[in-house]
């Protein structure tokens, strides 16, 4: 059986998982990075969002065989960065977190948006998190948090 090598949160790793295993399962079960959640398993809720070569993607839709040589960053790795600290602070300040299940994905989507567009309009923020479902907040506090992160994190993104 072929081994699949990739970079995970800055570390070179390999897995002998079957190539059609989903990345979300390999991350959680084999590498114990349990920050990424499985909500729907259909690519609709965004709770499993990770960065693949810096682009936000749904890890429930990615067969691990397709990521040979890729750089994967999960919320577990991202939480060690200055960018995360800024987002985290703003989510707290805006009261954007209730049950928390969607938050790892929301944070990844927020970071993906801000690194592409450091000064998003409200419409663009809503578009940026349009692939992430939150059943508690009604989204408004999350939108506020991202807006705050854009302003307070000026120059970071």
């Amino acid at each position: 059986m072929r081994v699949i090598k990739f970079q995970l949160n800055g570390r070179e790793v390999e897995t002998d998982a079957p190539p059609t295993a989903r990345l979300i399962d390999v991350l959680r079960d084999e590498f114990a990075y349990i920050g990424s959640k499985e909500g729907c398993g259909d690519g609709e809720c965004g709770a499993c969002s990770v960065f693949v070569n810096t682009l936000v993607q749904n890890s429930c839709l990615i067969p691990v065989g397709a990521i040979e040589g890729a750089e994967i960053m999960t919320i577990d790795g991202f939480s060690q960065t200055e960018l995360f600290q800024m987002i985290s602070e703003c989510y707290s300040e805006a009261g954007a977190v209730q049950c928390g299940f969607c938050i790892p994905g929301m944070v990844m989507a927020s970071a993906a948006l801000l690194s592409k567009n450091p000064h998003p309009t409200e419409e663009e923020i809503r578009e940026g998190i349009s692939g992430n479902l939150c059943r508690c907040t009604g989204y408004n506090m999350i939108v506020d948090a991202i807006d705050l992160a854009a302003k307070k994190g000026e120059g970071l993104w």
Partner: peptide
Amino acid sequence: GTDLMVQHKSPMGAPA
């Protein structure tokens, strides 16, 4: 794989 991985999903986190 965004369509195929959903169409060929296995239960309980088993490989597609």
